[in-house]
Write a protein that binds this DNA or RNA. Structure first.
Length: 518
RNA sequence: GGCUCCUUAGCUCAGUUGGUUAGAGCACGGGAAUCAUAAUCCCGGUGUCCCCAGUUCGAGUCUGGGAGGAGCCA
């Protein structure tokens, strides 16, 4: 077998000051779907997520809670770790920036950048907002009710003047532009790429990358008075996870550079500008791609603290089901766009697409086999043109889906899958196996065999998005656990006539309703 | 203020390098069928393709201007 190209995909590491909501779940879910797809397609996958635990905001929150920062982080980090079992995420690891190995990696990349002449000591003065973790110019500020200065996001700011190390970002403009130029898919979606390029073209200023005003972070090597700017530390997690600074480590050689950093659009600049510059400065390869996805609104409104309309992922899973929730988030909107969550849309998706189209297709076919073919895979006769018209596209489906997943167009992959679901339902009606039962039982067996094969393909290809339901479907087709990768698609591992099948059971229930429905 | 993207059927969106009667899904109405999770299948749209002007034999698709929305930056 040809050597499978390794695939490294990451979520951002989530800031422990937040509670997980569907926004976090969404990012990780998208990565999970891509990671599962790649594994099934024979790739050697590394899928990482984790938590970002340093910074002044965390230090203050811990203080307010009356606990040590690390103890505070232990608690909140666990909330994010709990997302994996809840949403069936298949991440290969979970990294915390408070781990020792991460301190080592962060200090190593700092030294590498310093050795390259890109770090110098100067001083920084400006209006700083702890809440926003950003400096502002005088003219960006507004006056609050009591005459105090406020950041553009309404956060309090304070005048800060402190010594700071700087990264010579200004020296990297041309090399960054060349890096974007190498590959039109470097930053996706396209409009985000345009924004980044225009930002870089407008000129880059050196970046302040250390603080002396707090202690909760990674100390600058050789100067303990300074703590690394949280983003230097946070971004480095992607390296820590694969063994950096040991560039001879097996994981590092296998997985670096990352194939995709999945991010929310709010943190694109850190990933698409600062991070590649840091890496190139340190003599490391920059990532292949940064994909910035959009935001969810809820019933047409932004999620916000003041509205209190954050949806905990647990609530969705409890109310609609795990696979239904996963399917909805991946299908409802073009991946990369903003989208809206509404109860109505959710129920439509789970009833129409999952229960009526896919679920019912499987149920009607498996029931007929169960009742009319002695509960075993039927033996097909010669295939007709109609049979091939359904079967061939199903066998070739993986090619189109692979192309879509390669560019994280997950909604497109699902649309392609459901095209075949629709074709299969039409085929059932056109062939009317319930009529053949009386007139031509052999032909009925062929039709049902073709359908069973098509459902096998659909279930195998649906595994990345709806892993539980797909597994139950494959169980009902008596497909062995080790016969579920994409290598079994086509004619490689066709269903064997005579194989006994269990009694079919629906895998996608319709929405049952609930008292609190509007 | 500069820049980017968006504006296509009630809703969510597709629409390759400009080319015949502009598409899909959902919702809605009618019909068929009865294997199946009250599921499936078929039929049904006179949509100012945001507006104006231009290029062209021909523009939803290109150019300029304008309106509305989202975003990046200053």
């Amino acid at each position: 077998m040809a050597e499978a190209k390794a695939y490294y995909i990451t979520t951002p590491i989530y800031y422990v000051n937040d509670k997980p909501h569907i926004g976090h779940a969404y990012t990780t879910l998208a990565c999970d779907v891509v990671a599962r797809f790649m594994r099934l397609d024979g790739r050697d996958v590394m899928f990482m997520t984790g938590t970002d635990e340093h910074g002044q905001k965390v230090e203050k929150s811990a203080q307010a809670a009356g606990v040590e920062p690390l103890a505070f982080c232990d608690g909140v980090s666990q909330n994010f770790r709990d997302l994996s079992p809840l949403l069936n995420f298949s991440n290969d690891g979970f990294i915390r920036t408070t781990e020792d190995r991460h301190t080592v990696a962060s200090q190593a990349i700092w030294r590498a950048m310093a050795d390259n002449g890109d770090i110098y000591l100067d001083s920084y003065a400006g209006w700083y907002s702890v809440r926003d973790e950003a400096y502002y110019a005088e003219d960006e500020l507004s006056d609050g009710a009591n005459g105090e200065k406020l950041s553009p996001f309404g956060a309090p700011v304070e005048w800060v003047e402190e010594p700071s190390y700087f990264f010579r970002l200004s020296q990297w403009q041309d090399r960054l532009l060349a890096y974007y130029d190498e590959d039109p898919g470097r930053i996706l979606p396209q409009s985000r790429r345009n924004e980044v390029i225009s930002f870089v073209k407008s000129g880059l200023r050196d970046l302040s990358i250390s603080r002396t005003s707090f202690k909760w972070g990674v100390p600058v090597p050789g100067d303990d008075a300074h703590i690394m700017y949280v983003w230097v530390d946070a971004l480095t997690n992607y390296l820590t996870a694969v063994g950096y600074p040991d560039t001879e480590a097996e994981d590092f050689k296998t997985y670096w550079p990352a194939d995709v950093h999945m991010v929310g659009k709010d943190i694109l600049r850190f990933h698409a500008v600062y991070w590649p510059a840091f890496l190139m400065s340190a003599g490391l390869a920059p990532p292949e791609r940064i994909f910035a996805h959009g935001w969810w609104t809820v019933e047409g409104q932004k999620m916000s603290k003041s509205l209190g309309n954050f949806i905990p992922p647990q609530d969705m899973v409890d109310k609609y089901g795990l696979d239904q929730t996963r399917y909805f988030m991946m299908r409802e909107l073009p991946f990369g766009n903003d989208g809206n969550f509404s109860h109505t849309a959710m129920v439509n998706r789970m009833n129409s697409d999952l229960a009526n189209d896919f679920g019912n297709l499987a149920q009607r076919v498996l029931s007929m086999i169960n009742k009319n073919c002695a509960a075993a895979v039927p033996a097909p006769g010669l295939l007709t043109v109609d049979d091939s018209a359904l079967l061939v596209p199903a066998r070739e489906l993986v090619d189109g889906i692979r192309a879509a997943i390669e560019e994280q167009a997950i909604h497109q992959a699902l649309a392609a899958l459901w095209d075949v679901v629709g074709e299969a339902n039409r085929y059932v009606d056109a062939q009317a196996p319930w009529a053949l039962k009386k007139t031509d039982p052999e032909r009925m067996a062929t039709v049902l065999y073709v359908l069973a094969e098509v459902i096998r393909h659909l279930a195998i290809l649906a595994q990345p998005v709806v892993p539980d339901a797909a597994a139950r479907l494959l169980d009902q087709l008596a497909v062995a656990e080790e016969q579920r990768s994409f290598a079994t698609l086509g004619e490689a591992a066709m269903l064997q006539p005579g194989t006994a099948l269990p009694k079919p059971q629906g895998v996608f229930p319709r929405y049952a309703g609930s008292e609190d429905d509007a």
